[in-house]
Structure formats: C-alpha cells, structure tokens
C-alpha cells in the first residue's frame, strides 16, 4: 500500500485491467488506472493484450454460435 491514494504499481494495475472484464471498478480505481496508464509504458501493452483477448472471445463466440461453422 502506498501513501498516495491514486498510486498503483504495474502489478496492481494488471489486476485491475483483468478485473475490469468482469465488474465495474470503483471510481478511485478508475482514476488511479487512468493516471498510471498516462505515465507507464508497459501497462498500456498489457491493456492491449486484454483488449485483444476480449476481441478474440468475441470472434470465438461468433464462430461457436455461428452457423456457418461446419466441421
């Protein structure tokens, strides 16, 4: 725990980016996330991985539900 209310480590931010897929984050976490992302080079990459996974699951859902998928 740090002394600044909006300070988060990359590890904490990674956990928030994963959690965001399943729940709304509290406002303090959202602000901390924005602040961290603006200053960090590594976490935006992690975020892009999470977004790629979100996109991938969407593609898979279409493939799974979609009709054209014969095997």
């Amino acid at each position: 725990m740090s002394s600044y209310p909006f300070k988060r480590t990359c590890k904490e931010v990674s956990a928030l980016l994963i959690a965001r897929e399943d729940r709304d984050l509290p406002v303090a976490d959202r602000m901390a996330l924005r602040l961290h992302m603006a200053m960090c080079k590594a976490c935006p990459r992690f975020e892009r991985q999470v977004l790629t996974m979100r996109n991938a699951m969407k593609q898979w859902r279409q493939y799974a539900n979609d009709a054209g998928n014969e095997r």
């Binding site: 480590t9 590594a42 976490c43 892009r48 991985q49």
Partner: peptide, 21 residues
C-alpha cells in the same frame, strides 16, 4: 499474476509483449 516477472517495487520486470490486434 505471480508468474509474471514483476520487480520488487511492483513494476514490470520485462515489458509485456506487443500482441497487436
């Protein structure tokens, strides 16, 4: 998360790979 290399201060030890989209 423990398998990802973070430094002692909680920052990434190695930047996550660029996966692209």
């Amino acid at each position: 998360l423990e398998f990802i290399a973070f430094k002692a201060d909680g920052h990434f030890g190695e930047s996550p790979a660029e996966w692209g989209n």
